[in-house]
Amino acid sequence: MNTKHVARLALLTTIALILFTVEAQLPPLVPIPGVKLGLANIVTVYAMFRYGPRDALLILLARVFLGSVFAGAMMAFLFSLCGGLLCWLIMIPLRRILTEKQIWVCGVIGAVFHNIGQIIVCVGIYRTTAVLVYLPVLMLSGILTGLFTGFAAYFLLKWLNGRL
């Protein structure tokens, strides 16, 4: 990994971290725990298609770790980590089957799996299946926010055209 590449990944990590931190300051839109825009997902999708799974994972892990440190919440760390990893896993096969114009689909499916990962952690921590009731609501919110972040990543890839 040469210096230029490290600098690029660091820049992307910083952007993801800023999105993550700024988003955490926004008041919640709906009173449902776990529903959020997931702006940092834009960077994950971007890195996945621009640089591949390995680099996307590096950015994801750095962002989740540093984001939790800055937010000072260890609980958030577990949720972000499990959601992020599941999201990353599903993106690997998607990267192969999606054409350039379908990159936004990756944002949608990634967001849905992020929310599934969060619910899994939730059931594990609370040891109650009562929270499973939230799954359809969260998956729906994943589709909607994923459309937004997916298209954002798609236009980003198109406009930057390999310059970052």
């Binding site: 725990p33 609980m75 939730c122 921590i125 009562a130 929270v131 009731v133």
Partner: peptide, 11 residues
Amino acid sequence: VPIVCLPHRLV
């Protein structure tokens, strides 16, 4: 639908 407080692990 339960009331959930994620940071305090309360349901």
